[in-house]
């Protein structure tokens, strides 16, 4: 006998709640105003424009450090999301479950391709390799056109110790 698939609301509620839990655990994301949109397992980080994000008031342009932070946050969120996906789907990520430990950045290499314009920015990351201890993640950011990246980065991360 086939098991009936879970109701769609149950699946969505579980995934959105887990994502919310991840994001809420990082005060610096709130400081920069970053939120994350989800479609299935695909995450897009959104950085709404704000005057406080400006690095060059003459142009004006986004601060290179804002771009760096945005890309790093996106990489860590994607990696954490991939890391907890199975536990989440198995219903193990609950309110009384231990706090989700985040990977730690070992190194981060940024490539600034264009001036960051004074408007919203988006970023998506791809986990290229994720082992027990180390992971390598690539991340891309754009503004108006998905094919015209304004920055990209690759980083190595130390994975948190996990059971089993």
């Amino acid at each position: 006998m086939n098991q009936r698939p879970e109701p769609v609301q149950v699946v969505k509620q579980r995934r959105d709640a887990t994502l919310q839990k991840l994001v809420a655990g990082v005060p610096y994301m709130q400081f920069l105003g970053i939120h994350i949109e989800r479609r299935g397992d695909e995450l897009t980080a959104v950085l709404p424009f704000d005057e406080a994000l400006i690095g060059n008031p003459m142009l004006p342009a986004l601060h290179g450090g804002v771009t760096a932070a945005f890309l790093e946050v996106t990489a860590i969120m994607e990696l954490s999301w991939a890391m907890i996906w199975e536990d989440m789907e198995a219903g193990k990520v609950t309110d009384d479950a231990p706090k989700i430990l985040l990977p730690k950045t070992i190194d981060f290499t940024l490539d600034y391709l264009r001036t960051g314009l004074p408007r919203d920015a988006y970023a998506r990351a791809r986990v290229n390799r994720s082992g027990r201890r180390y992971a390598s993640v690539h991340v891309e950011a754009w503004q108006d056109n998905r094919s015209r990246l304004f920055a990209q980065a690759t980083g190595h991360f130390l994975m948190p110790a996990r059971d089993g």
Binding site: P27, Y28, A69, E72
Partner: peptide, 27 residues
């Protein structure tokens, strides 16, 4: 500043804030 924290469990500043500092200092 607690607003720059990456992980409230440890209270450690987010790497992104350190990057912003390094980038500004380099400039």
């Amino acid at each position: 500043d607690t607003r720059f924290v990456g992980d409230p469990e440890t209270g450690v500043i987010h790497g992104g804030a350190v990057s912003a500092l390094m980038d500004t200092c380099g400039g």
